[in-house]
Design a protein around this nucleic acid. Structure first.
Length: 652
DNA sequence: CAGTGAGCGAGCTTCCGCTTGACTT
């Protein structure tokens, strides 16, 4: 009996099915089984960053199971994912089982779970790639030093329990900077002018369908920029200029616009799309995707690869041609854009194209169905033909001004049959060059530029992915962490907004550690990790190049930065116990009142943001901003529990 | 999706990245 070890239990079951249970026993590790200890640094800086690893408490059972199985098998086949982490998991497994004599062991990899791919992999075993393992060790140890050295500085200078890390601190920085942009935003006024036109022969008709809109775009043949018309005065001057103008068709441009489908889903795009379509959190989307994966309806849901297996491509082709005809099929291969992608899995797709959503409707729960439908459609569409639009652009001259009308109609739906996206259809009447038109209405409209909006889970994930920060398995946890730490909270529209303590922490980090708390740091490290993986440099050098300069600054800042007592705010409140004044301090759950005589007097009191609004229910209470256990903001009455008024929305 | 109110605060917090457990109440 040969023992095959993979990471995911579901994967183990599928592979066992492919191979039968005569020659192979397929088991799973459930991810990492060993790691640095949680309560200690676990890195000996003096000894060239030598790590101490411990078996993860959760993995103890797995490890003893693995040990047993290994004892009874003739050889071990390590089939963990083909990426840095997978290679490392394989290595840790070998390190954790001290069996004598050492059993023969080989490493195999595959990117798709098909019988063929597995059989091929079994024929091409290799050894563990220590360079790749070392790249993972460098990544792990660097992250540990970064987080476990920097966090204590925050405990000392702001509040206990705070945290900093390569990923979370940059995520918080993005959110804080967006907030600053919004606060500093000055809206700019601008105007647009729209002409409602029609053919001369339709001028008397009351039918609005004969009318079409044209936007003023040029003056003296020059494009008017977006904020070109700044004031009401300027807009009305143009209206005056245009009095008595003749509107004449100057140019008709017709062309076909072809649109390509979007690539199949990967974790980040699945989370973004589920947010945009259903308003699901990344966490919830992953929960539903996990269910679909475990029941065998979709491929693995934590992937950054756009790759589709040949059998998947074949399935899509057959499905489309059989049900919709050749015109709807188009072979497409997608290249993964992200440089940091590890490509251990396929894109997220239905396991069988024939499993159309309609077919599965009765087998799936409501939300499983919604997500499956999305994944299936996106996958089929990714192998479907282009959609073709007929577009028309018509320029209309009026004195020295030019207006433009655009029309667009769908000629062939192509992939839209499977994955509809929003588009505008508007038809223009049949016009001739030099044709004179009738002006029905000339409308000036005032606009103001809008500030950028706060990040949603979807847009934040998009940014993180863009900068290569975080991985498919961590996007959802990152968003949870920064909320749990009270750095960020969701506003009424579920958008991410920094808290006071978030801003405070971010300022300290960005001002004092600008070289590492930024969006480019991860990329720089990734480049070096690639060099470790290809054997060009030692992993210890990557860690050392980061750590020693960092440590120097850290020690300096520990001395120089003011203590956290500097942040305590005086108040007019008096301690009911000892009559000393109360001060506001920062705690893990936000601000709280504490007695100035602390530690002699231990009196504390909640600080809650109070809105200057009476309670609509009991009339004499005030509205207080509160949080649920899960951290969601709601508004309640200050007389609670006497008065039980509460509301998700901010009362007005 | 699901669906609203504790306790924290002088002891011992904290990182990122794999993967989903299931001793008892």
């Amino acid at each position: 009996m040969k023992l095959i070890i993979v990471e995911s239990p579901t994967k183990a079951k599928i592979i066992q099915n492919f191979l039968g249970n005569k020659d192979f026993d397929v088991v799973s590790s459930g991810g990492h089984i060993r790691d640095l200890p949680q309560k200690k640094l676990g890195v000996d800086i003096e000894k060239n960053f030598q790590p101490t690893y411990v078996i993860l408490p959760k993995a103890k059972k797995t490890v003893s199971l693995l040990k047993n199985k290994i004892k009874n098998s003739e050889s071990i086949i390590l089939a963990t994912d083909e990426d840095r982490e997978g290679e490392s998991i394989a290595w840790h497994i070998l390190q954790s089982i001290n069996i004598k004599p050492q059993k023969p062991h080989r490493r195999i990899v595959f990117h798709e779970i098909t019988k063929q791919a597995i059989e091929k992999a079994l024929k091409n075993p290799r050894d563990i790639d220590m360079n790749l393992v070392n790249a993972q060790q460098a990544r792990r140890i660097l992250d540990r030093l970064f987080g476990y050295k920097l966090s204590p500085l925050l405990w000392k200078k702001i509040s206990k329990g705070l945290s900093a890390g390569r990923v979370q601190s940059v995520a918080v920085r993005l959110i804080c900077e967006r907030e600053k942009e919004i606060e500093n935003f000055i809206p700019q006024e601008y105007w647009t002018i729209i002409a409602n036109l029609c053919k001369i022969e339709d001028a008397k008709s009351k039918n609005k369908n004969n009318e079409f809109e044209a936007l003023l775009i040029k003056k003296n043949k020059k494009i008017i920029p977006k904020l070109g018309i700044k004031t009401k005065k300027e807009a009305y001057k143009i209206l005056k200029d245009l009095e008595g103008a003749i509107y004449k068709v100057e140019k008709i441009e017709k062309k076909e616009i072809k649109r390509n489908p979007l690539p199949p889903f990967i974790t980040s795009t699945l989370q973004q799309t589920a947010y945009n379509k259903f308003k699901w959190s990344a966490k919830y989307t992953m929960k539903i995707a996990q269910q679909l994966y475990e029941t065998g309806y979709i491929t693995y849901h934590r992937s950054d690869s756009l790759n589709l297996s040949n059998s998947a491509l074949e399935m899509a082709k057959n499905f489309i041609i059989k049900n919709f005809g050749k015109n709807y099929y188009q072979f497409r291969k997608y290249k993964t854009k992200s440089k940091t992608a590890q490509e251990a899995h396929e894109a997220i797709r239905p396991t069988f194209a024939e499993n159309s959503p309609e077919k599965l409707k009765n087998k799936l729960e409501k939300n499983q169905f919604k997500l499956y439908d999305l994944i299936w459609r996106r996958f089929i569409a990714s192998q479907a033909s282009q959609a073709i639009f007929a577009s028309q652009i018509i320029n209309i001259s009026a004195k020295n001004y030019t207006f433009q009308a655009t029309g667009q109609t769908l000629k062939f739906d192509g992939f839209l049959k499977f994955y509809p996206i929003q588009y505008k259809e508007n038809t223009l009447p049949l016009l001739q060059k030099d044709e004179i038109l009738k002006l029905k209405k000339l409308t000036p409209a005032q606009h103001f530029t809008k500030p950028p909006s706060r990040y949603t889970e979807a847009t934040l994930i998009k940014m993180l992915e863009k900068y290569g920060i975080g991985r498919p398995s961590t996007y959802a946890p990152i968003i949870s962490t920064i909320q749990e730490r009270n750095y960020v909270e969701k506003d009424e529209n579920k958008k991410l907004q920094p808290t006071e303590i978030g801003i405070l922490t971010n300022n300290l980090l960005v001002e004092n550690f600008p070289n590492i708390i930024n969006v480019d740091f991860t990329k720089k490290i990734e480049d070096k990790l690639d060099d470790v993986a290809s054997g060009k440099i030692e992993w210890q050098k990557v860690v050392g190049d980061f750590y020693f300069p960092f440590e120097k600054i850290l020690l300096q800042k520990e001395k120089d930065l003011p203590p956290k007592s500097n942040l305590w705010q005086e108040t007019k409140e008096i301690c009911p116990k000892c009559k000393a004044p109360l001060v506001l301090k920062y705690g893990r759950f936000g601000k709280f009142y504490a007695c100035l005589n602390w530690p002699k007097c231990k009196y504390t009191k909640d600080f809650k943001e109070t809105l200057d609004l009476p309670c609509p229910k009991c009339k004499n209470g005030k509205i207080i901003k509160r949080k649920t256990k899960k951290g969601k903001i709601f508004y309640g009455c200050s007389n609670w529990p006497k008065c039980d008024f509460s509301s998700w929305k901010k009362p007005k």
